[in-house]
Amino acid sequence: MRFTVGRVGSLISGRYELKEHIYTSNMSSVLKAWDYKEDRFVVVKISTDTVQYSNLVECLKREAGALSRIDHPRVVRVFDSGNIGPSHFIVLEYIHGTNLANYIHRHGRLFLDAAISVGIDLLEGLEAIHKEGIVHRDLKPENLITTRIGVKIIDLGLAVSTPAAEQKMDPLDSPGMVSGTPPYLSPEQAQGSEDLDARSDLYACGVILYELLTGALPFYNFKKDGQIFKYWQGRLRPFWEVSPAVDVPDKVQAVVWKALAVDPKDRYQTAEEMRMALLEVMEKYVTIPLP
């Protein structure tokens, strides 16, 4: 039985008037709302089916808890949370910008300097997230919003705390359960490892950066409806093969390949280390904001 919440026009907690749907899934509804107390637009995320998806309330509480520990311009802010009957809601910063996945879909690959700028912004946000002992676990273009002043990371619903001991006690994951979105899963995450750390997020950054530079994924044999554990086992697609007309400098390619190493020990060990590598190659290019 579905508990219907999130009707446009309704008022939550006496202050948030729901104005329009942003998107709705089986698990949650995300709506633009007006906050009468602060006179600003916000985003309200509400669990929509707490019977079929019994962990949704805890998932939203976890997202609110993770975001409440982070105060950084590259990470979406959380303002409030509460309950509506059996459902839970969180109130988030409303970001004026474009979903990066939609941007890629409309425009294809980014220019080199813009792609590197996005990567640097993403890694700045990850530094703040990882500093709080949190692993995002679901980095992908859909969870990045581009604005005129940079990129913001959203949706920490799958985030977990480190060290690994805390992950193993996480009640939202069953042993061996795979959380996240192919093809942005690191090899260890795709295998259901319980010992994820920041390097798993850096693998996802490598996939995203490759996609920004080429407009395609770096895997030969990835199928969205196929086995998610196999796509990373084969060779990675060289840049020249995907975009023969695009000249991606060797130093930029080297950053991507290191982030995409199968063994976490061979990747960048921190977001700061990867960001500094991008800043080094960025010195040769002029940074421009995304339109």
Rank of each mutant, 00 (worst) to 15 (best):
Y220Q: 10
E194S: 09
E211V: 09
K230N: 12
L213H: 02
A216M: 14
Q227G: 15
D225T: 13
E194T: 02
D195H: 12
D201L: 08
G206P: 04
Q189N: 09
P183W: 08
F229H: 10
P244V: 14
E194D: 15
L209I: 05
D225Q: 09
C205S: 06
Y203F: 09
F229K: 11
W232P: 01
L212I: 07
D197K: 02
A190Y: 07
E211S: 14
F239L: 03
C205H: 02
P249H: 07
L209N: 02
R235W: 02
T214N: 11
S186L: 04
E211H: 03
L236Q: 10
A190G: 15
Y220G: 03
W232C: 01
I208F: 05
A216F: 10
K224Y: 14
A245E: 10
Y210Q: 10
V242F: 02
E241A: 13
I208H: 04
A190R: 05
S193I: 03
R235A: 12
N221C: 13
I208W: 08
R237D: 11
A198R: 00
D197I: 03
K224T: 09
Y203C: 06
D247H: 07
F229G: 13
C205Y: 05
C205F: 01
S193Y: 04
N221W: 07
S193K: 05
V207L: 10
F229V: 15
P183D: 00
P183E: 01
W232R: 01
F239C: 00
Q189Y: 01
L236V: 06
R237T: 09
W240M: 05
G234K: 06
K223D: 09
K224D: 12
Q189E: 12
K230Q: 14
W232F: 15
E211D: 06
L236C: 06
F229Y: 05
E188Q: 11
R199T: 08
D195P: 05
Q227A: 07
S243D: 07
V248L: 07
S193Q: 10
L209E: 01
A245F: 14
E188L: 11
K230M: 05
P218E: 01
L236I: 11
V246M: 13
K230I: 09
G192W: 14
L209T: 03
P249A: 08
Y210C: 14
C205P: 04
L217G: 04
P238N: 07
Q191F: 10
L202H: 00
S200A: 12
Q189V: 03
V242P: 03
N221L: 08
Y184R: 04
P183Y: 07
P244H: 08
F229P: 04
L213F: 08
D225K: 11
L196A: 13
D195V: 07
V207E: 04
A198T: 01
S193W: 12
R235D: 11
I208A: 02
S200I: 13
P244I: 15
Q191M: 15
L212G: 00
L202N: 01
Y203A: 12
I228L: 14
L212N: 00
L236T: 02
A190W: 10
S200N: 09
P218N: 09
Q227W: 11
D225P: 03
A198L: 10
Y231V: 03
F219R: 05
P249S: 14
L236H: 06
A190E: 10
L212H: 04
A245S: 13
L196G: 13
Q233D: 00
K223R: 14
V207C: 07
